[in-house]
């Protein structure tokens, strides 16, 4: 999406339903990183669920009106909308585009919301905002613990880059933005082909077999390409890559052991923000190995971190 409307780094924040649950680590790291970068996230008052894949597979209006209620509220705040979850972002952005382009749908959405909404909110991923508004230079200045060439596979997933006409802020194949961030933190983004392959998303609870295959493919490819960890920007991706990793290892009999970090957690690590250790402790795959590998080559004597499992 386009550049910022904001003169100050203040955003209408759409946390999404996972942020106080399975993605609590993400939420906490977002708070810490944004405050360190002087960004102000103002939660959209009384926001509701975007409807996710269940809504757009059930009813056209539902898939547009649920996101639109949030966007209509955000519009009044006159700030860009910051969305940390790739799936929520996708639903908000697609609904927004359809409201702009389909007059009849817009009319029905407005009836459902009992208010007018023209699709003018500027919906952006938090990743886009951190990199393009706060800026890589500002981030680099805050890096106190460069990540010493830690090899990271940047995983964008599907919904942040597709469909390109609704969400594009980076190219749809082999996107670069997260790689640039990771490089700015002193880590080394690995070249790998599965950046935008699907992890299986919401099938986690229903067709776990599909998730096991897709997520397994992603994890194994990252490993083969030399990654020491995976960096992502979506709670759904995290859920599959991190939570399902042990089972994938068990079923395939193949050890993977790839810690998965939210980009904000990686920033927290490099910026030495308080709380990093507690976020990482919430993960299923232990990140301790990576931390100790970093500690071995530089002064990272933070005992809490080094003692991570």
């Amino acid at each position: 999406m386009g550049a910022s409307n904001n003169s100050e780094l203040t955003y209408a924040y759409y946390p999404g339903c996972s942020i106080h649950g399975t993605a609590r680590d993400y939420g906490l790291s977002i708070d810490a990183v944004c405050s360190a970068l002087g960004m102000d996230l103002v939660e959209i008052p009384d926001w509701n669920c975007c409807g996710a894949s269940s809504a757009h597979g059930t009813d056209n209006l539902l898939s547009a009106a649920l996101p639109a209620r949030n966007l209509a509220i955000a519009c009044k705040m006159q700030m860009d909308v910051a969305v940390p979850c790739a799936a929520c972002f996708n639903r908000l952005a697609v609904a927004n585009m359809r409201i702009r382009e389909e007059a009849e749908l817009r009319q029905r959405v407005e009836t459902a919301l009992s208010q007018s909404y023209d699709g003018s909110a500027n919906v952006r991923t938090l990743l886009d905002i951190v990199i393009n508004d706060a800026g890589l230079e500002a981030i680099k200045e805050k890096v106190v613990r460069p990540l010493d060439g830690l090899k990271a596979a940047c995983y964008y997933g599907c919904l942040m880059v597709r469909p390109p006409d609704a969400v594009a802020f980076d190219r749809p194949e082999d996107p670069q933005i997260l790689d640039q961030l990771v490089a700015a933190l002193g880590a080394e983004p690995v070249a790998w082909p599965h950046k935008t392959e699907c992890c299986g998303a919401s099938f986690s609870l229903t067709r776990t077999d599909i998730v096991m295959k897709l997520t397994g493919d992603v994890l194994r490819m990252a490993k083969r390409c030399g990654a020491e960890c995976i960096v992502c920007a979506c709670p759904l991706c995290m859920a599959n890559l991190d939570m399902r990793q042990a089972t994938i290892e068990k079923v395939s009999g193949q050890q993977i052991g790839l810690p998965v970090l939210y980009f904000t957690e990686m920033m927290g690590l490099a910026m030495s923000l308080p709380g990093v250790e507690s976020w990482l402790r919430m993960h299923m795959v232990n990140a301790g190995g990576v931390i100790r590998r970093l500690a071995a080559v530089q002064d990272m004597s933070d005992p809490a971190l080094v003692s991570l499992p």
């Binding site: 649950g21 009384d46 509701n48 009813d59 649920l66 009836t111 919301l113």
Partner: peptide
């Protein structure tokens, strides 16, 4: 155990607004 499942729901306040959306959809 990791503190990643919130036992308590956190519903919206304006439930009527959400129900209106569902009503319109049907």
């Amino acid at each position: 155990k990791k503190g990643r499942l919130n036992p308590l729901p956190d519903p919206v306040k304006d439930k009527a607004a959400v129900q209106a959306i569902f009503g319109e959809a049907q």
